[in-house]
Amino acid sequence: MVTPQLIARLAALGVLGVVVQTAAVSQLPVAGGNADLSPLLVMAVGLLCGSLAGGSFGFGVGLFADVVSLQTLGVSSLVLLGVGYGAGRLREARDPEGTIVPIAVGAAATLAFGIGFALLQFLLGVDAPVSWALLRQLLATLVINALLALPVYAVVRRCLHGALPEDPRRRRRRAYTTGGLSPLSRGVEIRR
């Protein structure tokens, strides 16, 4: 259930994320590329809140980024919408757990965003040929984002703490600690 409190926190997170990205992060070149927080934020929200909130958050962040950067409206929002929805569906369908999950999903989100953005740019028409330097920058961004995925995920979870619709960890824990039996123990009970 998406509550007004969650919407307010997501809006603040999105605005702050885009401002930090444009005012600082995109001006920090690392190994020929720079970090891109947008797909990481959207991935984290998708993993924590589900596909509906993830997709909507991706759309909003993309639209805001396009507006702030004076880029073609709708490009980032369309791609980030897919990223957020995909991350949310992963959470709903598989509910993966583990430290590596945000890293892997963050890298995948960055790759999807990079490819999707490039594809749309081609569809909209780019006059000049594309250089290898672009591919190198995309790869650099992918590596940097993979390294940043875990801290960004932790920060987003901290920001949304208390407003999340349902924490998958809490849900699992409840099944074993509040009187519920695991399917294995239940089988033993039945046999007795």
Binding site: G55, L73, L78, L124
Partner: peptide, 22 residues
């Protein structure tokens, strides 16, 4: 159904924005 409707709506919004802006 709700989830799919929202997804479709947002995709449509993006495409409309993109087309209108371009």
């Amino acid at each position: 159904r709700r989830r799919r409707a929202v997804l479709g709506l947002l995709v449509a919004c993006s495409l409309i924005l993109l087309t209108a802006y371009f």
